[in-house]
Amino acid sequence: MDPITHLMTGAVLARSGFNRKAAYATLAMTLAAEAPDLDTLWSIRGPIAAFQHHRGWTHAFLGLPLEAAVVVGAVYLFHRWRLRRNKPTKHSAPLRWGLLYGFALIALLSHLLLDWTNNYGLRPFFPFNPHWYAGSLVFIFEPVIFGLLLIALIAPALFGLINSEVGARKAAFRGRDWAIAALIAIVALWGWRAVEQRQAIQLALNSQDFGSDPGSVPILHVYAEPYPANPFRWQVIVDTPDFYQLAAVDTFANTVATNPHSDIFYKPAETAATLAAKQSWLGHVYLDWSKLPLVTQSDTDPITGAITVTFRDLRFMYDTSFMQGREDPPLSGTVTLDSAHRVTRIKMDGHVQH
């Protein structure tokens, strides 16, 4: 999920009751809810390094205890700084550092859960099990979840202003009911989307629009990828031995729309160029992550003999309000090879790896 959603999730979790148990709970849980994304610092070493390490050990169960310790340690240093600066140290809740550590772990787990629900996925058992897991229930940025969290954070302040106008006493802890309601609504949304996802897959399986002869085409897997906001709209990918076929499924109208001319992607045969590209740094990282890779090569340059091999993931090859998946698929990479099939350039999402 996006960083703002993670941060707001930590704050809403704290307001659901944890902030009543230990001082600095809101600060610690907000920081911890976003802490795993510190792996984006690998982007300093280039786009492939960032891609390789994103959602690695910082998103694994093994790394959470250390991350919780770092977060609580940072909060402790902040507390000591306030004491040295003679800042007010009165707290509405008692100082309980051990309890705060447990709350940070809960916030860190919320990060893993949110990332699992989208279609990028994560590796929670890394490094012992490098397998990627993705629920594909919601889009990487989900406006409905964002809105629920934002309301839970803003509404108590707005109602607090109204109460202050009428002279009501200001509560020490505000927004608990709003926070709990928002969290329940998010869980309900996931459940609703899981039902719609299964229905989308079933509609695709029952459709007679796949392949030139549907009865003779064995289906290996069927995947349903989410659109933002609309729980009834899904991009379904049917995986067969020879090709992938995409379809737009509407579970509300019970319709499956696919075009055999533009929605079928045949699995290309291996060539010396694609095999060499798959042995590159990008190739190893991409094929480790991608669930539905499409690896294609360009025509050979008649002057230099260079060939460009493109890596795309079919899970993201559809258009939304946030991306143009057909024209410019996100999370795509290219490997350029010379006439001897040696790697001369690697790019990820349009950025060259130096």
Results as ranks from 00 to 15, higher is better:
A74K: 07
S136R: 09
Y227F: 12
N206D: 15
R80S: 09
V295M: 03
W97N: 07
R193E: 00
A182L: 04
G167H: 00
P330N: 01
W42P: 01
W289N: 03
F61L: 15
T336V: 15
A273M: 06
T336Q: 15
N206K: 15
L189C: 01
D115Q: 02
D301I: 09
H351T: 13
L189T: 06
F141V: 12
F252P: 00
I186G: 00
Y318S: 00
G305C: 10
T30S: 15
S164A: 14
P218H: 08
N230Q: 00
G63I: 07
L31N: 02
G56T: 02
P127N: 03
A194I: 05
V187N: 02
V72K: 10
T89S: 12
P156V: 00
W132L: 08
T308Q: 13
P130W: 00
A60P: 02
A272E: 13
D2Y: 00
A185G: 07
R198Q: 14
P218G: 09
R55W: 01
V144R: 02
L83Y: 07
I180P: 00
L108Y: 07
T304H: 14
A157T: 13
E270R: 12
P293D: 06
S207I: 09
W81I: 06
D2F: 04
K21I: 13
A14E: 09
T89D: 11
A155W: 06
T9M: 14
N119W: 01
S212M: 11
G46H: 04
I162M: 01
A35I: 09
F159C: 08
G10Q: 09
Q197V: 03
A306L: 11
A185E: 05
A155K: 07
L161C: 06
L275I: 08
Q208T: 15
W192T: 11
F252W: 14
Q202T: 13
P293F: 05
W289D: 02
V217D: 13
N86Y: 06
T300C: 13
L275A: 12
